[in-house]
Simulated assay, not measured.
Amino acid sequence: MPALKIGLLGGSFNPAHDGHRHISLTALKVLALDQIWWLVSPQNPLKSETGMAEYDERLASAKEAARHPKIKISDFENRAGTSQTAKTIAALKVTYPQHKFVWLMGADNLVQFPHWYRWESIMNQVPIAVFNRPGYRYKALNGMVAQKYKENRVLANSAGISLRAFPTMKPPAWTYLPQTAHKVSSTEIRNYRDTAGKACS
């Protein structure tokens, strides 16, 4: 496989939706990525198993929502037996040493990032692109992670820097993309389905 610049979007995808697709299409364009891999997690360690759909169902919803030849649905975490991002990225870099990986996350996840397993090692493994989420911009940009790594933030068009070069930068490096706010969330979709199901029963 030739060397590629690949964005990694991890999550439960319970279910996958247009918000995931919107982030991915923006990343492909702004960061000049060759592909996006949706890493469907067997079980997010920070989320309850209550209300979690079966893995195959979530994998299928991701394939249905992607609708783009450059968005690939991956069961790598399930096959590797890990759901912790630090371990997943380390395994991916060993398995695919020729690729350049960028971790993609929402601003809400940047706020809770210090609760992730070995989160600082994630910062040191790959560049991280943070996408705007309604209501989280201030918390994300003024939170612990942003403050600790403020010298490593990459701004578009700052000092002649283009975000198209971002995937090849040496970590720690992170950037914030404000133009990607999307109101849809997996939780809202599940709540809507539950409400609609009760109304029809």
Rank of each mutant, 00 (worst) to 15 (best):
R190L: 11
F13S: 03
T168P: 00
P45K: 09
P97H: 06
I71V: 14
D34W: 02
D56F: 02
I73N: 04
N132Y: 01
A199P: 00
P15K: 11
G106T: 06
T26N: 03
R67Q: 15
F131G: 06
V40P: 04
L163Y: 02
G81N: 10
L92T: 03
P42F: 10
R137D: 13
F101G: 08
E188P: 00
T50A: 15
D75T: 14
Y96Q: 03
A146S: 15
T85N: 05
R133G: 12
K93F: 02
G197Q: 14
G7W: 02
K29F: 01
R133E: 10
N157A: 13
W174D: 12
R164W: 03
L155V: 14
E188W: 01
S74C: 09
T50W: 05
G19L: 06
L155E: 12
L39Y: 06
A32Y: 00
V154Q: 05
A140S: 15
L39R: 07
M1H: 12
T195W: 13
P127L: 10
L46G: 07
L92F: 06
P42Q: 11
A66E: 01
Y55M: 04
A129I: 08
Q147R: 15
A199W: 05
K198I: 10
P134H: 05
H182C: 03
I73T: 10
P114C: 08
A129F: 03
Y55W: 13
L110R: 04
N109V: 01
A181Y: 00
F76C: 03
K87A: 13
A65W: 03
L8M: 08
N78Q: 15
R133A: 11
V154L: 11
D56E: 15
K139L: 15
R118W: 03
T187E: 02
I36Q: 02
S83F: 12
